[in-house]
């Protein structure tokens, strides 16, 4: 079942005195299923922040429709949008906690807005703080917490009204790797234990790889490609997606590294993409080819291997040709690296 749907959405900003126009989103269509973790990845300026703000009506598209459940956000008046917002939680890169309120006060705020009475508010705040592991900090103020703790408060606050959808705007970009892992684990629990649909935007492939089920790759206001995370990043069809994979895995030699490898390794250099079981060693051996591993990296994406290895192949030329032909016939992506 579809939870969030964007239909041909475009957003143009008019900037400055000269009224120059900036296209933030260009004909974006996208569907997020109920209960999934959907990631949107893109470099800064790709339009991600605008996209996520359309969903709870913080931004209005220039053209197109935004649907959340049965509500067409784009057709609602501001007043009716506010009611829908109570079913959509949001967390932010800079946490955006209220400094003037305690931790408990921050989590209670959406409940006050929703008109929940005091006793019920206290009960829910305690339960939420317990869920994010910060019950003992209820009476502290935000500046007494570390970044990771602040984001956990942000998550508790976003979940206060028991929303069915959580929007995460670069939620881990201000955190160190260890804290990032903790916050992502918590988001995983929010999705699995509470059944909350999560739409997150990020510029880090690691975030997508850790929590997302499906991903959309954005580039200059457009969706370059979208699909299950493994499919998109194991076989990227767009240059942006391929760039993200290369930057994250560092599995393919850069032109500089390649030039050095060519100087030090006189044999034939090939880079082989590693996906599932490849039987590389057996194939090379069978054709009398010696394969020396000179570069590469293999990582895991949704419990499946992804990466590539660069070999220096020595042995009879026809043996090498035959081995490579056999690999290609088996659907394995092979790149010759000798210019």
């Amino acid at each position: 079942m579809t939870h969030v749907r964007l239909k041909n959405v475009s957003k143009t900003f008019t900037r400055g005195r000269d009224g120059s126009r900036v296209v933030a989103l260009d004909d974006v269509s996208l569907e997020v299923a109920k209960g999934e973790v959907f990631g949107v990845i893109g470099h800064s300026g790709a339009g991600k922040s605008t996209l996520i703000r359309l969903i709870n009506g913080l931004e209005t598209p220039t053209t197109g429709e935004v649907w959340v459940g049965d509500h067409e956000i784009t057709a609602l008046a501001e007043k009716d949008q506010r009611a829908v917002r109570r079913d959509i939680g949001m967390i932010f890169q800079q946490f955006n906690l209220f400094r003037s309120r305690t931790i408990a006060g921050n989590v209670a705020y959406p409940l006050k807005v929703a008109g929940v009475d005091r006793a019920e508010r206290d009960r829910r705040v305690a339960r939420l703080l317990d869920f994010v592991g910060l019950l003992d900090r209820a009476h502290d103020h935000p500046e007494q917490l570390s970044g990771g703790q602040k984001q956990r408060v942000g998550i508790a606050r976003a979940l206060a009204t028991e929303p069915s959808l959580l929007l995460a705007d670069e939620a881990t970009s201000a955190l160190d790797p260890k804290t990032t892992a903790e916050v992502l684990a918590l988001l995983g629990r929010v999705n699995k234990e509470l059944g909350v649909t999560i739409l997150l935007i990020t510029h880090e492939l690691d975030v997508i790889r850790t929590v997302a089920d499906r991903v959309a790759v954005m580039d200059s206001g457009r969706i370059a490609e979208a699909g299950p995370v493994y499919d998109v990043f194991a076989n990227p069809a767009s240059d942006v997606a391929a760039d993200f994979v290369r930057d994250a895995l560092r599995d393919r030699p850069s032109p500089e590294v390649l030039a050095r490898l060519r100087r030090t390794h006189p044999g034939r250099l090939v880079t082989v993409a590693v996906r599932a079981r490849t039987g590389l060693a057996k194939t090379f051996f069978a054709h009398g080819v010696t394969a020396d591993l000179v570069f590469g990296g293999i990582s895991e994406l949704q419990e499946r291997a992804v990466g590539s290895l660069t070999f220096e192949l020595t042995g009879p030329a026809d043996g090498i040709d035959a081995a490579l032909a056999e690999l290609r016939a088996g659907g394995i992506d092979v790149t010759e690296e000798n210019d």
């Binding site: 917002r85 939680g89 955006n96």
Partner: peptide
């Protein structure tokens, strides 16, 4: 910080509130 105002808007609060 405009961020905290955005957080309050996202929580469904009215501008005057």
């Amino acid at each position: 910080d405009p961020g905290v105002i955005e957080a309050a808007r996202a929580a469904g609060a009215r501008p005057l509130s």
